[in-house]
């Protein structure tokens, strides 16, 4: 596989993450463990399901809605892997020569244009070597393999005729309730 490019993307992504972090550090100077923004007095049943504007993650605050070939596109809040939009496919389209897995996992991302949470199915395209383009690893509300339905490290190619991972799509399912 072309993990050289995976590595490069990884490094590039890290560079992006680092600059975001240093901005955070500046804002948060002396505020470690204190809110960056004033918190509204909202009772939260559980953080993992909190879709209020006040619960916006760093990703959601910086996400954009125009370029789906970039890691910060809003639907990619918990994607891990190569973006199919960079591999000859689309946001819900697998590239030629691959197969859409019948299984996926589902995350919730906030669309910054309307502030609402949407259900996004992260569906892998399987059957040929890792695409190696546009590698992203976003982690909003991501969990571990003992909660497999919320984990983005599992190779979600169950049911495809080949388990070889190529890229990931972010399919809109509907507004989260």
């Amino acid at each position: 596989m072309t993990s050289q490019s995976r590595t490069e993307r990884f490094v590039r992504k890290l560079a992006r993450g680092t600059s975001r972090r240093s901005i955070l550090s500046r804002i948060g100077l002396g505020l470690v463990s204190a809110p960056v923004f004033p918190l509204l007095p909202v009772e939260r049943a559980h953080a993992a399901k909190d879709r209020s504007v006040q619960a916006k993650t760093s990703f959601a605050r910086h996400a954009q809605t125009t370029d789906d070939t970039k890691c910060d596109y809003w639907r990619y809040c918990a994607i891990d892997g190569s973006l199919c939009t960079c591999c000859g496919g689309g946001i819900h389209t697998c590239p030629p020569g691959t197969e859409a897995s019948p299984t996926s996992w589902v995350g919730t991302c906030i669309n910054p244009d309307d502030g609402k949470a949407y259900l996004i199915a992260y569906r892998d395209c399987c059957g040929t070597a890792d695409c190696g383009q546009c590698y992203c690893d976003n982690t909003d509300r991501g969990n571990q393999v003992y909660r497999p339905q919320e984990n983005n490290d599992i190779i979600w190619c169950f049911g495809a005729s080949s388990m070889e991972y190529h890229c990931s799509t972010a399919v809109m399912v509907g507004a989260a309730e």
């Binding site: 955070l24 550090s25 804002i27 948060g28 505020l31 470690v32 463990s33 204190a34 809110p35 960056v36 923004f37 918190l39 939260r44 953080a47 909190d50 006040q54 619960a55 916006k56 993650t57």
Partner: peptide
């Protein structure tokens, strides 16, 4: 685990 809070 609250959002919008910076921690180590």
């Amino acid at each position: 685990t609250k959002p919008l809070v910076v921690n180590w």
